[in-house]
Amino acid sequence: MSQTIVSRHLAAPRGSVPQTALRGASPPSRPTTPISAPSVPAVLAAIGGLGVFGLSAAVGAPSTPVIAAISTIPVAGLVGAMVLTGPALVAGHLFLRPHVATETPVAALGQGLTAAGSVAMGIAPAALFLVATTGLWPLVLVAGFAAVGLSCAAVTLQMLRRATGDSPAFVVGWAALAALVALRVAVAVGQTAMEVL
């Protein structure tokens, strides 16, 4: 299925694409590679990895309700940002990149999420070690969340670039928007935790 994601649309007759969408369109500047969406277990494992990292960092917090609230920051921030900004990415591609399949941005987002989950799972032991031996759990949480978010953005952009053959400015703009939304969601969850405290 994934093999045809890009090639199907490249082979589509020009007339089948709305003229409004063609105004901003340009052919890919380099060869494209089809990307496949990750499986559901892979996505669930990624969310689990984000949860494990969140718990590893939050376990240094002063009370159990705060730990519970803080540990959801990575999942809420990243998944929340994807849910809120994903439609914008898909719509942007549909409008500006008519040669790109509808599934491509979704698949790229999925790949970004799985990469973020594997990084989160990887840094969780180090985070737990630092939280167990220092009082720097907020710093560990922020630094780890930043690393996870950057990994997600980098892989998503790289996948989109592979699939579309170029990296339009709106994708970079979307990444910045997603980062701001993720930060806002994380701050909101953090504020809730502070109110609990």
């Binding site: 594997s118 990887g122 032991p125």
Partner: peptide
């Protein structure tokens, strides 16, 4: 080494 082994692997995999 034991604590950071998963992180080393994750960083390499995320870099392709």
């Amino acid at each position: 080494v034991l604590v950071t082994l998963p992180a080393v692997r994750a960083f390499h995999r995320v870099c392709g």
